[in-house]
C-alpha cells in the first residue's frame, strides 16, 4: 500500500445562491497516481477541484494532506495547484517567459533558481522557442502547454488538471499523456477531470464518478466502465476499446483475458489470438 497523500472527509459545498454543488464527499488518494474524475457537466468536478486547492472556502468537511488536516486555503495552494480548463484564463503576463516565471517569483525564490526552473520547464513542455511571444496570441495547443508549464514551474506535489484534453489535436494529446506519465514517474500525483472516457480508460490508475454533487462510483477503470447503470446515470460513454473487446469476445473472435488499454495492447491481443487459432 502506497502513502495516502490526500484524504477528503465529509466535504460539502454550497454556492452563495444556495445551489448545492457537493454533498458529503469522501475519498482518499495515493501518492504518485493518476486519478480521473468523471461526471456530466455540472456534476461538481470543477467545484471539487477548487475546494481541494483552496480557491473555494471549505466550511463543511476536512481535507488532509499527508495525513495532516490543512484548513488554511493558502497552505493548500502551496501544495496543490490547478491547470485551468481554459488555458486563456491563466495567461496574465506579457510574454511566455514571464508567464512561466510568475509562480516561482511569487514564491520569493532567488533569480538564478527562477531562471533555472523556467528554462527546465520550458524545455520539458517544448515551448522554448516561444519565450518572447505574448501568450494571448499563441495557438490553443501552445497556450495549453504554457499554462501547464506555468504550474509545473512551481514544483508542487499534486496537480489538478481540469479537462486537459479539451481542444487538443491528436498529437498534442499524445504529448500530454507523455508529460503526465513523466510527472507521475517523478512522484507527483495527478487528479484529472474529463469527459473523455477513452483517455481515462487508457491512463487512469483509479476512476471516480460524480453525479449531482455526490460521489457515486470509485474503482479501477475496468471496474467502473463495466457498470452500465453507472455510466448511464452519469452521462458517460463506454470506452471504445472496451466496447470492441466485449463485442469480439461475445462473437468468440478472441479468448477472454487481457483487456487492452491502448491500441498497442489491442494489436498484440489480436496477434496472439491469430497465432493460437
Amino acid at each position: 500500500m502506497n502513502d495516502i497523500i490526500l484524504q477528503v472527509e465529509n466535504l460539502s459545498f454550497t454556492y452563495p445562491n444556495r445551489q448545492c454543488a457537493l454533498i458529503d464527499i469522501n475519498f482518499q488518494i495515493e501518492k504518485g497516481k493518476k486519478v480521473f474524475f468523471h461526471g456530466a457537466n455540472g456534476a461538481g468536478k470543477t467545484t471539487l477541484f477548487q475546494c481541494l486547492n483552496g480557491l473555494l472556502k471549505v466550511r463543511q468537511g476536512v481535507i488532509r494532506l499527508n495525513g495532516q488536516i490543512v484548513k488554511n486555503e493558502r497552505e493548500r495552494m502551496q501544495f496543490i495547484n490547478i491547470v485551468f480548463q481554459n488555458a486563456e484564463d491563466q495567461m496574465i503576463a506579457g510574454n511566455v517567459f514571464d508567464e512561466v516565471a510568475f509562480g516561482p517569483v511569487n514564491r520569493g525564490l532567488p533569480k538564478e533558481e527562477v531562471v533555472k526552473r523556467v528554462e527546465q520547464v520550458m524545455r520539458q513542455m517544448n515551448i522554448e522557442h516561444l519565450r518572447n511571444n505574448p501568450p494571448h496570441f499563441l495557438s490553443y495547443g501552445e497556450k495549453k502547454r504554457v499554462a501547464i508549464a506555468s504550474i509545473l514551474s512551481m514544483e508542487q506535489e499534486m496537480i489538478l488538471l481540469d479537462e486537459p484534453t479539451a481542444g487538443l489535436d491528436a498529437r498534442q494529446r499524445e504529448e500530454l499523456i507523455e508529460t503526465m506519465n513523466h510527472l507521475v514517474n517523478e512522484g507527483r500525483t495527478l487528479l484529472i477531470s474529463t469527459h473523455d472516457t477513452d483517455f481515462s480508460f487508457r491512463c487512469a490508475d483509479r476512476v471516480f464518478v460524480l453525479h449531482q454533487g455526490q460521489l457515486v462510483g470509485e474503482g479501477s477503470a475496468e471496474e467502473i466502465f463495466s457498470l452500465a447503470d453507472l455510466l448511464e446515470k452519469a452521462n458517460l460513454a463506454k470506452p471504445v476499446l472496451m466496447e470492441v473487446y466485449e463485442k469480439l469476445l461475445k462473437y468468440s473472435y478472441i479468448k477472454p483475458g487481457g483487456l487492452p488499454h491502448d491500441m498497442k495492447e489491442f494489436s498484440e491481443l489480436l496477434n496472439n489470438n491469430q497465432h493460437e487459432q
Binding site: 495552494m77 495547484n81 496574465i92 503576463a93 506579457g94 510568475f102 517569483v105 511569487n106 512551481m154
Partner: peptide
C-alpha cells in the same frame, strides 16, 4: 478567473507581489 489563477500561483501574498499581480 484570472485573479483565481494568480492566487493559485501565489500572487497577492506580499505588498510588492500584490502590486505586481494587480498590474499584470
Amino acid at each position: 478567473v484570472k485573479m483565481k489563477s494568480q492566487l493559485c500561483r501565489g500572487g497577492y501574498r506580499t505588498i510588492k507581489g500584490f502590486a505586481r499581480s494587480f498590474a499584470m
